[in-house]
C-alpha cells in the first residue's frame, strides 16, 4: 500500500462483509459481494450509495468491512468519522421551469450517443451507423412502451441496452426510478424496478439505490437546488458528471419520470 492512503468518508448504506475486486478505473475501484457492489472512489467522484471516498486508490484484490474498519487485502484502515447519508428525505415534483431548464441543460451538455435524444429528435442523427440505428430503434421501442403505460415491458426492453460499463438503458432506468420515487410514485418506481432484467452488477447497484431513494451527494445537491428554485447550472453539470454517458443517461431517465403521470 502506498503511503498517504486515507479514508475520507463512507456511505451509510454499506453492509459489512468481504468484497472481491470486480473492476477498476482511474477514479474508482469496484468490489462485489454476491450482487452488492462497494466502490472505492477518489474525492472528485462524489459521495454516493455504496461509495467509500479515499485519498488514493488501493489496488486491493479484496476488501473486508467490519467493526468500523476496512481491510484492504487484510490490512486494516479505520473508517472515517465522516459518513454520507445517501437518502433523499424530501419529495420533489419536476415540472414547469424546473423541468424545462434541466431539459435544456441536458440537451446542451449530454454526449451525442446518450439517451437525451428522447427530448430532441434531432439528436437521433448521431446514431448514424446501421448498428447504432438498430440500437436507437430498440431504445425508442422501450421508451414508447413506457409512454403507453406498459411500464414493466418498457423497462425490460431498455434494461441492459446500450454502450459502456453500465449500459445506457440501465442508467436511464435508474434515473427514472429515482424520479418516480422522490415524486411519491412508489408503485410505478417498483414496476420499473421489477421490469429490469440486467445482470450487470454495477447497474444493479444503481437500480437498487434509486429504488431506496438513494443518490450521490452531487445529485442530491442538484435536487436541493431544484427544490429551492435556484439557478442550478453548476449543480446540474456536477450531477451528470459521472461515468462517460452514465450521468446524462441517468438525468434523461430522471427527467423522463415527469412524463409518466
Amino acid at each position: 500500500m502506498k503511503n498517504g492512503f486515507k479514508i475520507i468518508s463512507f456511505s451509510r448504506d454499506i453492509r459489512p462483509g468481504v468484497y472481491f475486486l470486480h473492476s477498476s478505473f482511474s477514479k474508482a475501484e469496484n468490489y462485489f459481494r454476491g450482487r452488492n457492489i462497494v466502490s472505492l472512489v477518489l474525492p472528485g467522484v462524489s459521495d454516493g450509495p455504496g461509495n467509500i471516498v479515499v485519498s488514493r486508490l488501493s489496488g486491493a484484490k479484496e476488501i473486508k468491512i467490519s467493526n468500523g474498519c476496512i481491510y484492504l487485502d487484510g490490512r486494516p484502515h479505520k473508517l472515517s468519522d465522516k459518513s454520507y447519508d445517501p437518502a433523499v428525505n424530501f419529495l420533489l415534483k419536476i415540472e414547469g421551469e424546473k423541468f424545462d431548464e434541466s431539459r435544456r441543460n441536458l440537451l446542451k451538455y449530454a454526449p451525442p450517443l446518450s439517451m437525451a435524444f428522447i427530448f430532441d429528435g434531432r439528436r437521433e442523427a448521431f446514431f448514424s451507423a446501421p448498428f447504432l440505428k438498430n440500437m436507437l430503434s430498440a431504445m425508442k421501442n422501450g421508451i414508447n412502451l413506457l409512454k403507453k403505460g406498459k411500464i414493466s415491458r418498457g423497462a425490460a426492453a431498455l434494461s441492459g441496452l446500450g454502450h459502456g460499463l453500465t449500459p445506457s438503458g440501465d442508467d436511464f432506468l435508474a434515473g427514472l426510478i429515482l424520479g418516480l420515487k422522490i415524486s411519491g410514485r412508489n408503485k410505478k418506481a417498483e414496476r420499473v424496478f421489477t421490469g429490469c432484467k440486467t445482470e450487470n452488477l454495477i447497474s444493479i447497484k444503481g437500480l437498487k439505490s434509486s429504488r431506496k431513494g438513494f443518490c450521490t451527494a452531487k445529485f442530491k445537491s442538484f435536487l436541493f437546488a431544484l427544490k429551492l428554485g435556484k439557478p442550478h447550472l453548476k449543480k446540474f453539470k456536477d450531477a451528470v458528471e459521472f461515468g462517460s454517458t452514465s450521468g446524462s443517461d441517468f438525468m434523461a431517465g430522471f427527467l423522463f419520470s415527469s412524463c409518466l403521470y
Binding site: 448498428f131 438498430n134 430498440a138 426492453a157 431498455l158 441492459g160 441496452l161 432484467k197 445482470e199 450487470n200
Partner: peptide
Amino acid sequence: IMATKENKNI
C-alpha cells in the same frame, strides 16, 4: 459493446 442479452439482439 458489452454482450448483454439486449445488446446481442441488436
